[in-house]
Design a protein around this nucleic acid. Structure first.
Lengths: 354, 354
DNA sequence: GCACCCCTCTGTATCGATTCAGACTGTATC
DNA sequence: GATACAGTCTGAATCGATACAGAGGGGTGC
């Protein structure tokens, strides 16, 4: 039987309240008595107030949840997610708050249950898929949250940190279009739920499922529309799972046709790197170079010479947590749009003369 | 006022127990009543049993803590730590358990408090510094834990997952020694607490502070002792913080003397990569190449051509969590030693003839 | 000398659930 | 027809703390 606060109280001969105060409100009792209590606690092996009981009574937990709407293990595989987590961790650390990483089971019901059961004071929702149901649960629990994906029906007061996905993507596509590319493939994760890796036909970017992906593809499309390439003229590829492997699977056979694309615009660096992997392995004779762009500017991108759109990953995490832990009084400040920048490296170049 | 379980009970006209059972033990009531209760709950906006209250009564929380005895943000910066976390996450996911990342404040007292206050069922202790005090707290709380650093006074039944640090380090050093190197520098983190970056004099590896570092340096020393280079003949460098920058600071000026080392053995890949950074920038005329080895075989190591000792990072995390969540009946199986392998790449070579 | 206040400490109510022994009903067993 | 038993549901006890009003004693101001 582990000693309780009551046991310490009995040992010292004071009331339970006083022992509690010795731990949580030292100013409420004399220093001498406090020392006696702490000594007795040490003697008894009392490890301090039970965190769970304390949370129940106090009404808060002292930790924030980070929700990935996908495998938790994914979070550590994706370099962008890792940097995001680093930012969250930094802010949490500063506030003396812990981070709870909540894995979501595959089954919808269990996943719901997981969000319902998480002992946290709020959530940073990092969306890699549809998250509406999760937000419903969080709202029902009356917990605050910060979202990182644009949502169509977001209330004005809803806390959000993100970027202008469309404009950011536009900048990359405009760069590629400016280099003369007209036969172009767009590669992205979560274009449609449950679609396999490979080509996909949609009547327009507005049909794209995931809001982040939708924003980026819209930006790509807009830039090419301006140079006379409409949506139907672009090749759309789905790469479910946002991994190098998924990218490789998605572009399989892409360059073997009679008029292969001269550029691939990817919705993330990870996908772009996957494409570069594939291109690097195509050493079957002299092939005209293919331009590739990514998105995020993860650390690996620089080494690979990848042209990409930089967004401040760590900053995003930091601000998300900050918005949760220390919300600004001004409601407008709850909606943060971060800057992005096109980073041109060696993976893009002019269209080769064929 | 958020609805409680009692409110739902009142609405339906049943006892609190029955509502509780509707959520936690569906077999304890008729399906019809259960539906009525769940409906009422939905109507009232009751989000399910309060996790904290549930944990208090049930006696467990459903999450495990991961303790880094350093800045939490470090955990996401160090590629080895990230892979370790990925492993923990994988196991946690499989067990439907959440992971709580606990940031430790600088101040000793606050750090103690943080471990005392973490609402978890057990700890994976990832040590980057002295952790004895943390283990004391955890034991006082009566919580199970898994350690990943060798401890001298570890009980036989103490759960542990790690590698044979000495033997692993020995293999790297023997390789370098076999290449003919005799003027060698050893570079490591946490050689002594609070020591600045740079050279350090110790009478032997047994004086090294951190047990992991101690094991590795002992292995290095053993290999060189066998070829006639004793401890005093080796240059010891401290790189506090285990970062590329720390490595760069530690080796500053190292190669400018009359008889610079021809090889640097680092206690981690991150440090080794820092050394390679420095060497790459020394383009001041033709310098004889310096052999460098790392430790861990993080993803970046391969790209850099770094000779290193591979240890299964993700596996380590996975097994640590597994040991915690599903301890083997056999006490001996609580002590897991993982295999390591020397991976020879291009960063090591024979001593240049001068 | 009285009123007032501050400093310490106590006692009770409360946070929101789960547990478990039992009450009650209806059905199967012999 | 009595006994046993399975299936449902209830009530009180309990998990381990914190909050808050207030009691009691000593000091201060006037």
């Amino acid at each position: 039987m582990k000693p309780t606060l009551q046991a310490v109280a009995d040992a010292v001969g004071v009331s339970r309240s006083t022992v509690s105060n010795a731990y949580s409100r030292p100013d409420q009792l004399s220093a001498a008595l406090r020392e006696r209590i702490l000594d007795a606690a040490r003697q008894l092996g009392y490890p301090g107030p039970n965190p769970t009981a304390r949370s129940l009574r106090r009404g808060f937990v002292g930790s924030i949840g980070v929700l990935f709407t996908s495998q938790l293990s994914y979070a550590f595989t994706d370099p962008f997610a890792v940097r995001f987590l680093a930012g969250v961790g930094e802010a949490a650390e500063r506030h003396g708050t812990s981070m709870l990483l909540v894995p979501l089971p595959q089954a919808q019901t269990d996943a719901r249950r997981a969000v319902e059961n998480a002992a946290v004071d709020g959530f940073c929702v990092y969306c890699v898929a549809d998250e509406e149901w999760a937000l419903d649960v969080i709202r029902a629990r009356g917990l605050p949250y910060v979202s990182t994906a644009p949502r169509d029906d977001a209330g004005a007061d809803e806390r959000f940190v993100g970027i202008d996905e469309r404009a950011a993507a536009y900048s990359a596509a405009a760069h590629v279009a400016g280099l003369g590319h007209r036969r172009v493939a767009l590669l992205a994760d979560a274009v449609l739920p449950d679609a396999p890796a490979g080509p996909l036909t949609l009547s327009g970017p507005q049909e794209v499922w995931h809001p982040t992906t939708r924003g980026r593809l819209t930006g790509f499309a807009d830039a090419f529309a301006e140079v006379g390439v409409d949506w139907a003229g672009l090749t759309l590829l789905n790469a479910p799972g946002n991994s190098r492997r998924a990218a490789a699977a998605a572009v399989a056979g892409l360059f073997d046709g009679p008029a292969p694309p001269t550029a691939v615009l990817a919705g993330s660096d990870v996908l772009a790197l996957g494409v570069l992997d594939v291109l690097a392995q195509r050493s079957d004779g002299p092939v005209p170079p293919v331009s590739v762009t990514g998105f995020d500017d993860v650390p690996e991108a620089a080494a690979a010479g990848l042209t990409t759109v930089r967004q401040p990953a760590k900053e995003k995490g930091r601000i998300a947590a900050e918005l949760l832990l220390d919300p600004p009084a001004d409601a407008a400040a709850n909606h943060v749009l971060l800057p992005t920048a096109l980073v041109v490296r060696t993976s893009t170049g002019p269209v080769p003369r064929s």
